[in-house]
Amino acid sequence: MKNEKLKSIIVLTVICLVVAALLALTNSVTAPIISTARAEKVERSLKTVLPDAGDFEEIEALPENAPATVSAVYRAADGSYAVVLAARSAYSSGDMGITLGVGPDKQIKGITLTSYQESKDFGRDTYPQNYVGRTASDYAGVDSFAGVTYSSKALKAAIGDAFAVIEILEGGGAQ
């Protein structure tokens, strides 16, 4: 009986270790490819949200008090900002990748979702476009909606975070 228990523990542990080793090996091969593809996707999304802004320069040191959802901020020569966000709602298992383009007049010029695992309609619906033309003072007026597979609440909060980080940067809050 004792031997059986011990055997069960050993077998399950060995299987877990072998599977983990295989996954680690696969990850070492695929991780660089995946991260390059993601970076390229973000690059493309900058052009999608601000097609006329010209070249972008990434702000290397984000302010310390920048919201946690902000992954990167890019500044264009004409004063536009493209903010890359990774928002997470309470129920989702993965981040919602958002790129937001804010023009020199601080109006939202474009918004695109770059990744989200939990919606089969991801990227095909028009809801995020309701924010185009909104500013920091009136973006909260866009209605949220229910019955969809991604969180409009998380999207709205992320947009607020984007405006917050731009305000910090414009106000000289970068540290």
């Binding site: 996954l23 696969t26 990850n27 695929t30 490819i33 995946i34 298992s93 695992q117």
Partner: peptide, 16 residues
């Protein structure tokens, strides 16, 4: 992992 690396469009389509 393999699908995300080599077939990213399909990976996104299948989602969760």
């Amino acid at each position: 992992m393999l699908m995300e690396a080599y077939l990213p469009d399909l990976y996104e389509m299948l989602g969760v």
